[in-house]
Simulated assay, not measured.
Amino acid sequence: MKVAGLGFRKEVTLASLREALLAAGGPEGLTAIATVSDKADAEPLLQLARECGVPVKAVPADVLASVDTLTQSKFVTEKFGTGSVAEAAALAAAGPRARLIATRVVSQDRTATAAIAEGDGA
């Protein structure tokens, strides 16, 4: 399974989420989009999932905190306990043996990040 993890600010737009996803490799072959649970119902995220024809997987913040990431954001580490919400969400949703195939990329307006992981989903 191929999962895009997305991290974003409250004021994010669909265009910014789309831009970050495209920069990470695009929606081709995705089976899900994942993010932290408290943002999983954000309308721009739901719109992107509909565009891509995939479900949104909500990942609890405590699960994200247990995932080591390749990239590190000081702000995200302080808030979520992991270096990248996008990378951690993608890895957590793709399964225990998942690996990143695209590390975190950031939209030009800096409101959205995306990363992509592949795994067995188990």
Rank of each mutant, 00 (worst) to 15 (best):
K2C: 09
K2Y: 13
V3K: 05
A4E: 08
G5H: 02
L6R: 01
G7I: 01
R9F: 10
R9H: 13
R9T: 12
E11S: 14
E11V: 06
T13C: 11
L14N: 06
L14K: 06
A15K: 14
S16C: 10
E19R: 13
E19D: 06
A20W: 03
L21G: 09
L21V: 12
L21R: 07
G25V: 10
G26I: 08
P27G: 13
E28W: 00
E28N: 00
G29V: 09
L30F: 01
L30Q: 08
T31Q: 15
T31H: 14
A32H: 07
I33Q: 06
I33Y: 04
I33T: 06
I33S: 08
D38M: 14
A40G: 12
D41L: 14
D41W: 07
D41K: 13
A42T: 13
A42G: 05
P44W: 01
P44G: 05
Q47A: 15
L48T: 03
E51H: 07
C52W: 15
C52D: 05
C52K: 06
P55W: 00
P55E: 01
V56C: 11
V56R: 04
K57L: 15
K57E: 02
A58Q: 03
V59L: 03
A61P: 13
A61T: 12
D62W: 09
V63R: 06
L64N: 01
L64R: 03
S66N: 03
V67D: 02
V67L: 02
V67S: 04
V67C: 04
T69Q: 02
T69N: 01
Q72L: 15
Q72I: 15
S73Q: 10
S73F: 15
S73W: 14
V76L: 05
K79M: 07
K79E: 04
F80T: 06
F80Q: 02
F80L: 14
G81E: 02
S84D: 02
S84H: 00
S84I: 04
V85K: 02
A86G: 01
E87G: 03
A88W: 00
A89K: 05
A92E: 04
A93E: 05
A93K: 08
R97Y: 06
R97D: 14
A98W: 10
R99F: 06
L100V: 08
L100H: 05
I101F: 11
A102K: 09
A102R: 12
T103M: 12
R104S: 07
Q108F: 07
Q108R: 15
Q108E: 13
R110G: 06
T111E: 08
T111W: 08
T111V: 14
A112D: 04
T113H: 07
A117S: 10
E118G: 07
E118V: 15
G119S: 11
G119Q: 12
D120E: 13
D120W: 12
G121A: 15
G121L: 12
A122F: 14
